[in-house]
Write a protein that binds this DNA or RNA. Structure first.
Length: 460
RNA sequence: GGAGAGGUGGCCGAGAGGUCGAAGGCACGCCCCUGCUAAGGGCGCAUACGAGCUUAAACUUGUAUCGAGGGUUCGAAUCCCUCCCUCUCCGCCA
């Protein structure tokens, strides 16, 4: 969420910055909503003040045993108007809120302007590309011999799921352990174990809702209703519909009933960052650095047809996620450090990669600046995203009301950062492809061997 | 799943229809006293949003907020309804 003050002071400037990322800010709509809000709010508060002072007088008069009918009829005169105004105010504020909550973050000044990933800027290339004196296979062909089984996964669940067996499953686990240990022992992160099902407030906090609901999986726990309850729900639904038609604020009777709707996390960013939602963190606790290993669930509704082969794009994958909660003045420093922490994993694994700075058009909704790390995949003869490290500045913190107490003792919004360190499935793919041998076996990177019982290679 | 008790400011905790944004305490900030890592005293100290003033801050003022949402009332932290959450005991369970 952007700062509404900034929008009021300088809509055009904000609109221009948002335009660079392909978002058209409806400034006329904003002006209209603001004008409406202002007029209604001023008048409403005026009447509320009048009502409050009258009520106070009534209280005093009653205490003395005096007659209060004159004052009470005066209040009754504007009672209806006030009720209407309060309803109108709520409606316009709700509209304004909805309007604000779908505006993406403004890009940092250093972000290259561009339309798509082709406009991203390469920051550096690290590592040397492996040479093969045989025809390279992709991870699907290599994996088939080693325990990667899409057919069984499809039987159990469906498309875009995978099943790993034997050494491959262990290698997957070894990657997780290696990543976690590195970040905990060498980079100073605190490991956290978090819920994989979260509520809607958490999803709103980090920006997945309300705009990207279709990318998420949701579950309704214990939603078994008796016939009376079903009838009640139907009635509530009608009531809500009527309220909408009359233009009254909707009371969301259904929403409270459905409060046991959970969302499966699309990334650990959601539960981990929401640790500080509605909190005021003491200054000396900053920066907070968390690392978590979680599965991630994405419906990727819009991505069908892309990466259909293999485990590049799955409904479920594991990720080790780095999150930092920092002082606003330290967030860009923190981002560089965090990016470095993710890179270390690739360096230790001996995987060649490059770092790109995303252009305005390719950045995610909540980010002010994003670096992607792309790992070399020999079979695709290209670099593919394996980590995304972003500074969200105060965008998420404002939605979450995540604050710290500054040196003056006043609450101030935090900055939030996160990045994959790394996506485990894709790292497994990269290991398979980069360490493949002519005989179909795969050499295990040295840093992983302690986690593999000393094993040096996976052989068919 | 059953029974009960609760949710109030950064924290603890009173308040049980009127002058309550909310006593008291802790923590924190400024000041005084003391002169040594003790103690005492005074003052201040919620957040969001609006209006005024302003370059801005400060300030003044208004409104809202006592788990959330509805309702009753001239007036709700306090009464009613719905929901959420926490704790205790029992049951079940990895």
């Amino acid at each position: 969420m952007l700062d509404i003050q900034t929008l009021r002071n300088d809509v055009n400037q904000v609109a221009a910055r948002l335009a660079t990322r392909g978002f058209v800010l409806d400034t006329a709509k904003f002006a209209q909503l603001e004008a409406g809000r202002k007029a209604i709010q001023t008048r409403t508060q005026e009447l509320q003040a009048k009502r409050n002072s009258s009520s106070k007088l009534i209280g005093q008069a009653k205490a003395k045993g005096e007659d209060t009918s004159a004052i009470m009829s005066e209040v009754a005169n504007f009672g209806d108007e006030l009720k209407q105004l309060e309803a109108q105010l709520e409606r316009v504020q709700h509209e304004l809120n909805t309007f604000l909550s779908v505006i993406p973050n403004t890009p940092h000044d250093s972000v290259p302007v561009g339309k798509s990933e082709t406009d991203n800027v390469e920051v550096r290339k690290v590592g040397t590309l492996p040479q093969f004196n045989f025809e390279v296979k992709d991870h699907v062909s290599i994996g088939e011999q080693l325990g990667l089984d899409f057919d069984t996964a499809a039987k159990i669940s469906g498309a875009r799921f995978s099943l790993l067996k034997g050494g491959l499953a262990r290698l997957h686990r070894a990657l997780v352990q290696f990543m976690l240990d590195t970040h905990i022992e060498q980079h100073g992160y605190t490991e956290v174990y978090v819920p994989y099902l979260v509520n809607a407030d958490s999803m709103r906090g980090t920006g997945q809702l309300p705009k990207f609901e279709s990318d998420l999986f949701s579950v309704n726990a214990g939603m078994v209703f008796s016939s009376e309850e079903l009838a009640q729900i139907e009635e509530d639904r009608k009531k809500e519909q009527e309220q909408r038609e009359k233009g009254l604020p909707v009371t969301h009777m259904l929403r409270t009933k459905g409060a046991n709707t959970f969302y499966l996390i699309p990334t650990a960013e959601v539960p981990v960052t929401n640790i500080v939602r509605d909190e005021i963190v003491p200054l000396e606790k900053l920066p907070m650095k968390f690392v978590a290993h979680t599965p991630c669930f994405r419906s990727e509704a819009g991505a069908y047809g892309r990466d259909t082969r293999g485990m590049i794009r799955q409904h479920q994958f594991d990720k080790v996620e780095l999150v930092q909660i920092v002082h606003p003045e330290k967030s860009y420093e923190g981002l560089e450090a965090l990016l470095g922490h993710a890179e270390v994993i690739l360096q230790k694994l001996g995987l060649p990669y490059r770092v790109v700075k995303l252009c305005t058009g390719d950045m995610g909704f909540s980010a002010a600046l994003t670096y992607d790390i792309e790992v070399w995949l020999p079979a695709q003869n290209t670099y593919r995203e394996i980590s995304s490290c972003s500074n969200f500045e105060a965008f998420q913190a404002r939605r979450m009301q995540a604050r710290f107490r500054n040196a003056q003792g006043k609450p101030e919004l935090l900055h939030t950062l996160n990045g994959s360190g790394l996506a485990v499935g894709r790292t497994l793919v990269a290991v398979l492809e980069n360490y493949q041998q002519a005989d179909g076996s795969v050499v295990i990177p040295e840093v992983l061997r302690p986690y593999m019982g000393g094993m040096e290679k996976l052989a068919p």
